Amino acid sequence: IEEVKKIVSEIQSKQLTRITINGNTYQVNSPEELVEYVRKVFS
């Protein structure tokens, strides 16, 4: 979970619009959307 928080804060600070998780690239339009992807991947 700490690793996830680190990734999320990194993305928020860079305002990235794409994230790659487990080889899948997602278009991310908002931090909320990012959190949803993270929940799916780590749930």
Rank of each mutant, 00 (worst) to 15 (best):
V38W: 03
V8N: 01
F42M: 08
I21G: 00
T17L: 06
E3M: 14
G23P: 15
I11W: 02
V8W: 05
R18G: 05
K5Y: 13
Q15K: 13
I21T: 00
V4N: 02
Q15V: 04
L16D: 01
L16N: 02
E10Q: 06
K5D: 15
V38A: 02
I19E: 00
E10Y: 13
G23R: 01
K14S: 09
E10K: 05
I19Y: 07
I1A: 13
T20S: 05
S13C: 11
K6Y: 08
K5P: 04
N22T: 02
N24V: 15
K14A: 06
I21R: 01
E36K: 07
E10L: 12
T20C: 11
E10M: 11
S43W: 10
K6G: 06
V4K: 03
I11Q: 01
E2D: 12
I1Q: 11
Q15G: 13
V41Y: 13
Q15T: 03
V41S: 05
S9K: 13
E2T: 08
Y26H: 05
Q27W: 07
K5I: 10
R39L: 15
V41C: 06
I1C: 12
E33D: 06
Y37C: 12
R18V: 14
K40Q: 10
V8H: 01
T25V: 11
I7E: 03
L34E: 00
P31V: 12
V28K: 15
N24R: 14
V41W: 12
K6T: 07
V4E: 09
K14V: 04
T25M: 15
V35S: 05
S43Y: 09
I1L: 15
E32P: 03
E3V: 12
T17D: 04
Q27Y: 08
I21V: 06
G23V: 02
R18K: 13
V28Y: 15
E32F: 07
V4Y: 14
E32C: 04
K6C: 11
S43F: 13
I11A: 02
I11M: 04
V8S: 02
Q12E: 11
E32K: 05
N29D: 12
Y37Q: 10
Y37N: 02
Q12G: 04
I11R: 04
I19F: 06
V8D: 02
S30H: 05
E10W: 12
K5R: 12
S30M: 04
N24G: 03
E33L: 10
V28A: 15
E36G: 03
R18D: 04
T20K: 05
I1M: 12
S30W: 05
K5F: 12
L16F: 07
I21K: 00
N22F: 09
F42Y: 11
S13P: 01
V35R: 01
V38T: 01
K6N: 08
Q12C: 14
L16T: 03
Q15L: 09
I7G: 01
S9Q: 15
S9R: 12
V4P: 04
E3T: 12
E33Y: 03
E2S: 09
K14D: 03
K5M: 14
T17P: 01
L34R: 00
V38H: 01
L34M: 02
V35D: 01
Y37P: 00
K40T: 07
S9H: 13
N29S: 15
Y37K: 08
I7T: 03
N22P: 02
L34T: 00
I19G: 03
S9L: 15
I19D: 00
E10G: 03
L16I: 04
R18Y: 09
N29W: 06
I11E: 01
N29Y: 13
V38K: 00
E3F: 15
K40G: 08
Y26T: 06
Y26N: 01
E33T: 03
Y37R: 08
S43C: 15
I11P: 02
L16K: 07
S13W: 07
Q12F: 15
V35C: 02
T20L: 05
E3G: 06
N24L: 15
S30T: 13
K40N: 08
G23W: 12
I19H: 00
R39C: 11
T20F: 07
S9G: 09
S43D: 10
E2M: 10
K14N: 09
N24P: 00
E36V: 09
V41H: 13
S13T: 12
Q15N: 09
I21Q: 00
F42I: 04
E36Y: 04
I11L: 03
I7P: 00
V41G: 03
Q27P: 00
E2K: 06
E36F: 09
S30Y: 05
S13H: 12
Q27E: 12
V35N: 01
T20V: 10
T25R: 04
V41Q: 07
V38N: 00
I19L: 07
Q15Y: 07
Q27S: 12
E32W: 09
S13Q: 13
E33A: 08
N24A: 10
Y37E: 08
E36Q: 06
Q12K: 11
R18M: 14
K40I: 10
L34D: 00
S30P: 05
Q12T: 11
V38Y: 01
T17H: 06
F42R: 01
I21F: 08
I19W: 06
V38L: 08
T25L: 10
E3H: 10
L34V: 03
N29L: 13
N22D: 09
V38C: 00
N29K: 08
N29H: 07
V28R: 15
V4Q: 07
S43N: 11
F42V: 03
I1D: 14
N24E: 10
N22S: 05
E3D: 12
N22V: 02
V41P: 00
K14G: 09
S30V: 04
T20Y: 05
E10C: 14
K14I: 05
S43E: 12
E3W: 15
S30D: 06
E2F: 10
F42D: 00
V38S: 00
K5A: 14
Q15D: 03
L16Q: 03
T25Y: 09
E36P: 00
F42S: 04
T25I: 10
Y26V: 11
T25S: 10
Y37H: 11
V35K: 01
Q27R: 06
Q15C: 11
V4M: 14
